[in-house]
Design a protein around this nucleic acid. Structure first.
Length: 210
DNA sequence: AGCCAGGGTCTAA
DNA sequence: TTAGACCATGGC
């Protein structure tokens, strides 16, 4: 089994410098909700097509029906509109000031995010890492498939979290980059080619998905 | 036509 | 505690 560092180095060498989700914390929050079980292209369709970017104030003051229609192409629009409202109300509790939230303990921020209906572990960790620069490793379906193909037999997400957080420096930047690289790998190489021919892990990548 | 896309909640066993 | 149903839409 490769170490977490070795996995990262291999991905980095193959795919190059990873991107950051967004430097705007609220953009991260909104897009993290919209992308739930939804194609990224649909998220762009909604967020990139707006004349004015979605602000906390707009989300809180807009009519429910208008908000639902706005995000409609992303699917689950009623549920996601309500989740966006709850998440934004939470953000407004801290005056929509990311800096003040970043001063809070990581465990507290995560607990508060998870208490919001519609925000699960993955979405909370995306917001923690990319929005507030807190090292909470993001585990999504790509991460699970990635490790499973390489033969790691983790029992659950908690075991995966332990693996990464024990071996890696606790740096949000690194966690965000790692997540991005796993995503690139999953999308570009292993989607239509489960055998991973030509992928940076060669024959180590085995087993069908899931 | 059917399956999947950077999930989460609720219920039944 | 875990598996399955359900939620909505768009692209291929």
């Amino acid at each position: 089994m490769m170490t977490a560092q070795a996995l990262y180095e291999t991905l980095l060498a193959a795919y190059g410098q990873p991107q950051w989700w967004s430097d705007n914390p609220y953009t991260v929050m909104v897009q993290a909700v919209l992308v739930q079980n939804t194609a990224w292209s649909s998220v762009l369709k909604v967020t990139a097509a707006m004349e004015e970017p979605l602000t906390p104030q707009r989300v809180l003051e807009m009519e429910t029906d208008a908000l639902e229609q706005l995000i409609r192409p992303c699917g689950f629009c009623k549920a996601k509109a309500a989740t966006l409202r709850r998440l934004t109300a939470w953000y407004a509790q801290y005056d929509c000031d990311a800096q003040s939230i970043m001063h809070m303990a990581q465990a507290r921020i995560r607990r508060e995010l998870l208490s919001l209906k519609g925000i699960g572990a993955e979405t909370a960790d995306v917001i923690l890492v990319y929005g507030f620069h807190k090292p909470s490793f993001i585990i999504d379906v790509y991460t699970r498939r990635f490790l499973a193909r390489l033969g790691y037999g983790f029992a659950d997400d908690e075991a995966i979290r332990q693996f990464f957080q024990r071996e890696l420096p606790m740096e949000a930047r690194l966690y965000g980059w790692f997540h991005w690289l796993i995503l690139m790998h999953g999308i570009q190489r292993c989607k239509k080619n489960p055998a991973c021919g030509g992928c940076p892990f060669y024959g180590a990548c085995h087993e069908a998905q899931k």
